[in-house]
Simulated scan of single mutants.
Amino acid sequence: MSSRRSGGGSSSRSGGSRTSVKQLIKSLKNHSVNTLTELCRIERIAAACEDEADAKAFQEPMTAAWVYYVTSNQLLTELRGFTGNYPISADVIHDAHTRVRADPDSNRSWNLAWLCLNKMRDDGLISGYSEVEASRQEMWGTTVPTQEEVQQLAACFEYEWSVAVDTMLRHWQTPPSWY
């Protein structure tokens, strides 16, 4: 019985697959691909590799590409694209990244972006940082807000940031985890 997955493309299955795999790996290494959608596309191709050598060849460059995606602020840029009304704070991502690096279970995936997005959602970072953002005086100018107004603004931040994180997490039908 074949273990081929549909939708993964034929680039890792055909005689010309070595060239395609090499091209994809090169694009990962030189960071010419650095968007969530494109990295996920390559990740799906890598996961669908039937050739063990091709699958192993993807491991280090794919891991490094996800690290670069987070540390080059591309994750922040893309999240801010989803949070136009209430731009997500860079502090949320920094805190999530710090927590992932300190978490001994973070080795469950090669995908730093996925790990960070999950930390943001699961560790309550979105809620906590939306309150911090809403409390900043620069949000209010010369107005001194009431606690109720701060909570209302925090709720707006939290909603928009949560939707953005959930939207990005939908790129993975299954967690990008080591098996």
Results as ranks from 00 to 15, higher is better:
1 M>T: 14
1 M>W: 12
3 S>V: 08
5 R>A: 12
6 S>N: 14
9 G>Y: 04
9 G>E: 10
9 G>F: 04
10 S>P: 00
10 S>N: 08
11 S>E: 15
12 S>T: 11
13 R>W: 15
14 S>V: 11
16 G>R: 09
16 G>D: 03
17 S>Y: 03
17 S>E: 11
19 T>K: 14
21 V>E: 09
26 K>G: 06
26 K>E: 13
26 K>D: 13
26 K>M: 08
27 S>V: 02
27 S>M: 10
28 L>S: 07
29 K>R: 14
30 N>A: 00
32 S>W: 03
33 V>N: 03
34 N>L: 14
34 N>W: 02
35 T>E: 10
37 T>R: 11
40 C>N: 14
40 C>L: 07
41 R>Y: 12
45 I>T: 14
46 A>I: 04
47 A>S: 09
47 A>D: 10
48 A>L: 02
50 E>Y: 07
52 E>R: 04
53 A>I: 11
56 K>L: 12
56 K>D: 13
60 E>R: 12
60 E>N: 10
60 E>S: 13
62 M>V: 09
63 T>H: 15
64 A>C: 09
64 A>N: 15
65 A>C: 10
66 W>Y: 13
66 W>D: 12
69 Y>R: 04
69 Y>W: 07
71 T>R: 13
73 N>S: 12
74 Q>V: 03
75 L>H: 07
76 L>D: 09
77 T>K: 07
78 E>W: 10
78 E>L: 10
80 R>V: 08
81 G>A: 12
83 T>K: 06
83 T>E: 05
84 G>Y: 05
84 G>C: 03
86 Y>W: 13
86 Y>M: 14
87 P>K: 02
87 P>D: 05
87 P>N: 04
88 I>A: 11
88 I>M: 15
88 I>V: 12
89 S>C: 06
89 S>F: 02
90 A>T: 07
91 D>M: 05
92 V>Q: 01
92 V>D: 00
94 H>A: 11
95 D>P: 00
97 H>S: 13
99 R>K: 13
100 V>C: 14
103 D>T: 00
104 P>F: 14
105 D>N: 07
110 W>P: 06
117 L>E: 05
119 K>V: 11
119 K>L: 03
120 M>V: 04
122 D>Y: 05
122 D>I: 00
125 L>R: 06
126 I>N: 04
128 G>L: 01
129 Y>N: 06
130 S>R: 10
130 S>M: 08
132 V>I: 15
133 E>V: 09
133 E>G: 01
133 E>P: 03
136 R>D: 13
138 E>A: 11
140 W>S: 00
141 G>R: 03
142 T>M: 00
142 T>K: 02
142 T>Q: 04
142 T>F: 01
144 V>R: 10
146 T>D: 04
148 E>I: 11
148 E>L: 13
150 V>F: 04
150 V>R: 05
150 V>Y: 03
150 V>N: 01
152 Q>V: 07
153 L>Y: 01
155 A>I: 00
155 A>M: 00
158 E>Y: 00
159 Y>I: 00
159 Y>G: 00
161 W>S: 08
162 S>P: 02
163 V>C: 09
163 V>N: 08
165 V>C: 01
165 V>D: 03
167 T>L: 02
167 T>N: 06
167 T>D: 02
168 M>T: 05
171 H>W: 10
174 T>E: 11
174 T>K: 08
174 T>I: 05
175 P>M: 01
175 P>T: 01
175 P>W: 00
177 S>K: 06
178 W>C: 04
178 W>G: 01
179 Y>V: 08
